[in-house]
Computed example of a mutant assay.
Amino acid sequence: MILVSESPMAILSLRSSSSLPLICSTISPLCSKPMLSQLPSNFSSSIASVPVTKLKSSYSSSVSPISRPRVVSARAATESFTDYREDIGEILGDVSIFTASGQRVQFSDLWDQKDGIAAVVLLRHFGCVCCWELATALKEAKPRFDAAGVKLIAVGVGTPDKARILATRLPFPMECLYADPERKAYDVLGLYFGLGRTFFNPASTKVFSRFSEIREATKNYTIEATPEDRSSVLQQGGTFVFRGKKLLYGRKDEGTGDHPSLDDVINVCCKATVA
């Protein structure tokens, strides 16, 4: 059986806990014993088993290109896009998701499609400890988004009841949180998916510098927030800024925990408000 953990590594079990450090060190340099000893204690509670057959299927059916994505800044907003069609905002607008309370909505209903500015942050799944950390940072930055007149929209993989677990236990403002159980928005935006991106991407090593933030964000963490469809844990996220239907900034997470600088995102939003 393959065990999926919300640390940036894959852990194989041979039915012996004492063999874990040795097994991990043979898989990836990230899994060496010194690295494992630094993990927060609540990381161990985020391990969920996934049937091998489902993982094989998920790994072979990546929904997005493997090439490095282009990051579009506000300054480059008028340039042609290599990764996204000019009408990507309109296409995304037709995607339906759910509020945390369970109401179905379309993206086009979430902000003014003519001149409104929205920061759309697609988390991984609601049971990802790195996403609890990102959600905490978003909550703390929300007053800055509000002051800039920007609508903050956080979307996670899972059903509305899983979203409510995160919103209640973190806590996180329910009015900003949405659920995408079928990963429709993730598919439209071509976000990365698969074993390699989830566990072995070098970009994930940055989580080792944020242990204190992760530990603080997951004080009330529960694995119950993980989607029932365990293949969903292989989904990566991304961050986007729109003005109306126009994409101003787009960034795909390269691996688990590869989050953008929120200062950069807010700067893009602020420049858009004065443009």
Rank of each mutant, 00 (worst) to 15 (best):
L92H: 04
L92R: 04
G93S: 12
G93K: 07
G93D: 10
G93H: 05
V95C: 11
V95H: 07
I97V: 14
I97Q: 10
I97S: 03
F98Q: 13
F98N: 15
F98S: 08
F98T: 08
F98C: 09
F98I: 11
T99K: 10
T99I: 10
T99Y: 10
T99S: 14
T99Q: 07
A100Q: 10
A100K: 10
S101C: 09
S101L: 09
G102E: 13
G102C: 11
G102L: 11
G102A: 10
Q103V: 12
R104Y: 08
R104F: 06
R104Q: 15
V105F: 05
V105E: 02
Q106Y: 15
Q106P: 00
F107S: 02
F107K: 00
F107W: 03
S108W: 04
S108E: 02
S108N: 15
D109G: 13
D109T: 14
L110F: 03
W111N: 01
W111D: 00
W111V: 00
W111C: 00
D112A: 04
D112K: 05
D112S: 07
Q113N: 11
Q113W: 00
Q113F: 03
Q113C: 06
Q113P: 06
K114H: 12
K114V: 09
K114Q: 13
K114S: 10
G116C: 10
G116F: 11
I117Y: 03
I117C: 07
I117L: 08
I117H: 00
A118I: 03
A118V: 01
A118P: 06
A119I: 06
A119M: 08
A119D: 05
A119E: 07
V120Q: 08
V120D: 01
V120E: 04
V120L: 13
V121L: 14
L122M: 14
L122Y: 06
L122F: 08
L122I: 03
L122E: 01
R124L: 06
R124D: 08
R124Y: 02
R124A: 02
H125E: 15
H125K: 01
H125V: 06
H125M: 12
F126L: 08
F126I: 04
G127V: 08
G127A: 13
G127D: 11
C128Q: 09
C128E: 05
C128I: 05
C128H: 03
V129L: 13
V129D: 00
V129R: 10
V129Y: 01
C130W: 05
C130Y: 11
C130K: 13
C131Q: 05
W132D: 00
W132Q: 01
W132Y: 05
E133N: 13
E133L: 03
E133I: 00
L134G: 00
L134H: 08
L134A: 06
L134M: 15
A135K: 07
A135H: 06
A135F: 14
A135Q: 08
T136K: 11
A137Q: 13
A137W: 09
L138V: 02
L138D: 01
L138H: 01
K139R: 15
E140I: 08
E140L: 11
E140M: 12
E140Q: 11
A141Y: 13
A141C: 11
